[in-house]
């Protein structure tokens, strides 16, 4: 019990989120899907325009 309380006390934004999301799985599933749709809209906007050139020109010297 004490252990559980201590874990909750740590300053992590994630804890609150988890508590909110756990009870309603389908709800969180829909929320995730809506988020993904927004993300894909955004990706279409920010994705490098010439994918072919971009990928081809990414050449690195080997490191460690």
């Amino acid at each position: 019990m004490a252990e559980r309380e201590q874990i909750r006390k740590t300053p992590s934004r994630s804890d609150e989120k988890t508590v909110e999301e756990t009870p309603a799985n389908s709800e969180s599933g829909e929320k995730l899907k809506a988020e993904l749709d927004d993300l894909l809209d955004e990706i279409d906007e920010v994705l490098e325009t010439n994918a072919e050139d971009f990928v081809k020109s990414y050449i690195q010297k080997g490191g460690q």
């Binding site: 990928v55 990414y58 050449i59 690195q60 010297k61 080997g62 490191g63 460690q64």
Partner: peptide
């Protein structure tokens, strides 16, 4: 770089 060159 996905072309065989890795860094750590």
């Amino acid at each position: 770089d996905r072309k065989g060159n890795a860094y750590g």
